[in-house]
């Protein structure tokens, strides 16, 4: 479903190459994890796939179910089923969380030629999903992410994911800043969405999250490349020995 080939990316503003030939394919129903040291380009990959400004693709391709992602606006990518749970969710004062989510759900439906969701259906659905993630009514009413704790922001990302039901979910360090309980809530939220039609790309610095969200494939990224790919045991290896050994072994 997600196919990334030979992706090369540099910054628009300065002459700095960040991704140096990334190849990656996520099949439907699978969970792929990307691990790697800070600064290796993991967030950049997630931003380039979702269409953030500031990056120039100098080579390579990225498609989702055959759609050329790199040629689409961010909202079009969302409408074909791509979702990024942000490493740093953005605070938006003045825009209510609920209004935002309803607008997003209906915008995507409209883009796909589907009927808008009625207010009643929307309310019912969001209450149900919010409850599972222990998000209270007050958090739904407040402006998007404003005054949310780190853990609340991450849970809010998962709520959005649950409401939008994307085909391809990218989670960028969703585990950072979470305590054990929040980690469990978030993982349960993700696992509830696991489905044979849906792919996941879970970016994380630590192995911890992968105890809860069991990956099928683990990739190690370093300096803009995927330098090693393996099964879940690769994550354990990283946990034990750190990244240095792997980086050295490949070099």
């Amino acid at each position: 479903m997600l196919e990334i080939k030979n992706l090369h990316v540099r910054l628009e503003e300065e002459d700095k190459k960040i991704l140096k030939g990334v190849d990656l394919t996520v099949e439907p129903g699978k969970v792929h994890a990307i691990m790697g040291p800070n600064g290796s380009g993991k967030s950049t990959l997630s931003y380039v796939l979702s269409g953030r400004d500031g990056y120039e693709v100098t080579d390579g391709t990225a498609t989702l179910d055959g759609h050329d992602l790199l040629d689409m606006e961010p909202e079009e990518r969302a409408a074909v089923g791509l979702f990024l749970a942000f490493q740093y969710p953005v605070e938006i004062p003045g825009v209510g969380n609920m209004t935002f989510l309803r607008t997003a759900v209906n915008a995507q439906r409209k883009a796909r030629g589907q009927e808008e969701m009625s207010s009643a259906d929307f309310l019912k659905l969001i209450r149900e999903k919010a409850k599972e993630l222990k998000i209270d009514a007050d958090m739904l009413k407040r402006p998007v992410n404003v005054g949310f704790s780190g853990g609340e922001k991450k849970r809010n990302e998962i709520l959005q994911m649950a409401m939008l039901e994307p085909k391809m979910c990218i989670l960028d360090e969703t585990d950072s800043g979470l305590d054990v309980d929040a980690m469990k809530l978030v993982s349960d939220g993700v696992n509830a969405l696991r489905d044979e039609g849906r792919g996941f790309l879970v970016i994380t610095h630590y192995q911890r999250l992968l105890n809860h969200i069991k990956p099928d494939v683990v990739h190690i990224m370093s300096d803009g490349r995927i330098i090693k790919t393996g099964g879940p045991e690769l994550a354990l290896e990283v946990e034990e020995n750190g990244y240095a050994d792997i980086v050295e072994e490949v070099a």
């Binding site: 953030r52 606006e73 969302a78 990024l84 003045g94 997003a104």
Partner: peptide, 26 residues
């Protein structure tokens, strides 16, 4: 704010709608 705009668009809001929402919020 470009970060806010991108966040809204990444959730599927068309550019114009995302801008309008941020204008009203302002």
């Amino acid at each position: 704010d470009e970060d806010m705009l991108f966040y809204l668009r990444a959730r599927g809001l068309p550019l114009g709608k995302a801008q309008d929402l941020l204008v009203l919020a302002f």
